[in-house]
Write a protein that binds this DNA or RNA. Sequence first.
DNA 1: TCATAAGCGAGACGGTACGTCGTGTCTTACG
DNA 2: CGTAAGACACGACGTACCGTCTCGCTTATGA
Lengths: 206, 206, 206, 206
Amino acid sequence: MGLANESSVTTPKGAGPRSMNEDREMEILRAAYELLADVGYEALRLDAVANRAKASKATIYRHWAGKAELVAAAVRSCSTVETHIPDTGSLRGDLLASVGHLASSIAGYDGPVFAALIMAMRNDPEFANQMRAMQVSKRPIIEAILGRAQARGELKPGCDAGLLEEIGPGLIFMHVFALGEPVDDAFVRHIVDDILLPLLTPCGCQ
Amino acid sequence: MGLANESSVTTPKGAGPRSMNEDREMEILRAAYELLADVGYEALRLDAVANRAKASKATIYRHWAGKAELVAAAVRSCSTVETHIPDTGSLRGDLLASVGHLASSIAGYDGPVFAALIMAMRNDPEFANQMRAMQVSKRPIIEAILGRAQARGELKPGCDAGLLEEIGPGLIFMHVFALGEPVDDAFVRHIVDDILLPLLTPCGCQ
Amino acid sequence: MGLANESSVTTPKGAGPRSMNEDREMEILRAAYELLADVGYEALRLDAVANRAKASKATIYRHWAGKAELVAAAVRSCSTVETHIPDTGSLRGDLLASVGHLASSIAGYDGPVFAALIMAMRNDPEFANQMRAMQVSKRPIIEAILGRAQARGELKPGCDAGLLEEIGPGLIFMHVFALGEPVDDAFVRHIVDDILLPLLTPCGCQ
Amino acid sequence: MGLANESSVTTPKGAGPRSMNEDREMEILRAAYELLADVGYEALRLDAVANRAKASKATIYRHWAGKAELVAAAVRSCSTVETHIPDTGSLRGDLLASVGHLASSIAGYDGPVFAALIMAMRNDPEFANQMRAMQVSKRPIIEAILGRAQARGELKPGCDAGLLEEIGPGLIFMHVFALGEPVDDAFVRHIVDDILLPLLTPCGCQ
DNA sequence: TCATAAGCGAGACGGTACGTCGTGTCTTACG
DNA sequence: CGTAAGACACGACGTACCGTCTCGCTTATGA
């Protein structure tokens, strides 16, 4: 029972009005992210963000330069893209899991958030790089999947890992944005079975 | 501070005010399109459009409901996408021509216009349909190319025409938007040689 | 206000939104003046003015540079000081009428408006001059009063008209501002009987 | 490197090694008063006061309720009005000294401070009373002057001491505020010779 | 040929969001 | 404990833009 000096405790008790500046940032980002998903970029009002976060506009502008930067940070911080390496035992299973997760992530940004990403990337090149890095961060996943497939002899020789990086997101993006259709399992299977597998595995004429 | 507005050349008489209303529409659309390419959707000011077209905001709003509709119409009218069916004598040549043209068109919307399209499509579903129809309008081109290839026996049996529709634009879009890289001939060849042809032609392992 | 309302010719809609720009100015000034009297200078919110005048802040700022200028113009336009020359047949009667009217005018600016005048005069030298000119405009009144009194032989020889200009306002101002007391008839009589008349008429000691 | 040299510590306290709070108050008031004279009431920022006094806003708000109270206290503490009873041997000399001192005091609050007083009095009735008490505190001076004059037989019978209280400040205030002119000796002589003395001394027609 | 009607350039206007700033409260760290 | 430092909520300010509206001018039509 160290009676002595527990002042080092950072008052984890939530009851009182805490006012650290590390938490506020995150709370504001969450508020921004949720409103973003609700109403989209254009209709996102900073007053509404401040109100929902019980923050003040001054605080927002103390941390971010404007709407675009706030949205960029919000998406960066609250986006649910995770880097999980699937291992289902087969190339097809891995691809289905990987593409499926990507699809649900992107489709989760359905509708309004998409425009937000575009705007945020356009107005914040640094955020654009971040987003692209997020994309690049999937590289190890892809290589792990392909590595195991190669070990199992499922892979066509000389196939490029970069292919997966491009095709999956491109098609999903196309589907959601240009076609405006939701991304469902059938579409994921279509990508995997009709496009990726034929490109990766030994000729389907087998 | 405020933008410089030095165009206050009153020209009480001088510039003869013509009174046709059919041309005005097009001039306004051109002004909107050019400004759109210059500054993007967000920074596009209807005052600036009116000023550049030497028109009045009232005239603009007499013809279109708002910014989104104006941009939609501008892109629709001024976009350079043409529907030309290439015939080079080989599947690869046709694909290179087709994808190359698509790439240069999309890449021509470099930077700002892309966001414009997103916003316009989001705010104007009818325009979104129009854009998607533009996409669909390429269907006959694709079918013509594949038809000739099939006649030449270049095609793998059972390949889907829909594939071309999805993959080309998706990859180009990905390249321009997500990666932020320009679309050059090498990339077009990459799409054709490494992705499209392997999917369309009998397996190269043969 | 009491102005002729000839605008009924235009706007056939009747209840429709009228939009002349000459009247708006006056309506805004009235709104500002009334709110000014209600809440004072500090508590005067331009939003409130805009709201009461059913105007927009942009319109206010298009016409005036800021709060001080708006208040200055409002006081200038809406102040009720009129230049009426009293003629009661006696010097005392004229003085009572003149000082009484001045007193009720100044006292009408009771409380809040006084601070407004100070601020407006400090922030708008041109308005300060206007206010001082308003003061000067009473000169003819004074001279008329004194002229008639002289003709009646009521006046002490060599008395200065400038005296009236200074003493009346100074005392009233002092009373309202520094003492914070209302200006009533007794005080007006005090000024006239105990100060002005002794200074103007042949010595009452006789 | 030197180890025990604690003199390099910033020690912003400077001259005050101990932490008394009686001096701080005065330093803050001085800072407020000086800034007040510099920039006026409206432009007086509490941050600036805190900064100049090397104090914290919290300290200020621990001692005073707000800007008005701070300014009131500052003027109360730092104002240079003194209560000195002149004795020149003649009524005219006493009046010249008394009015002259009052004039220089008021005129010393030239420009910005005047608005400050108005605002402070309006927002702090208690301060308004204080200011009026300051005015009232001159009563003994007036009575002393008049008493000596009466003893010398300079005074007209039945003249009111209250007259002096009202006329002097009223005229000076008028001069400075409404006319915007500086108060010089000539004006002081004008008040004394043309207004006060005629009202106080036996009729000049004698 | 002139008058009436309509379209247009110009721009003021109401409304609303933005981004800045100042006040007054509150928390942390220091002495 | 009292203080310096400064983050914070609240809210007003002044700016910018959108979409509506009215004016005055010009042009195209009908008698």
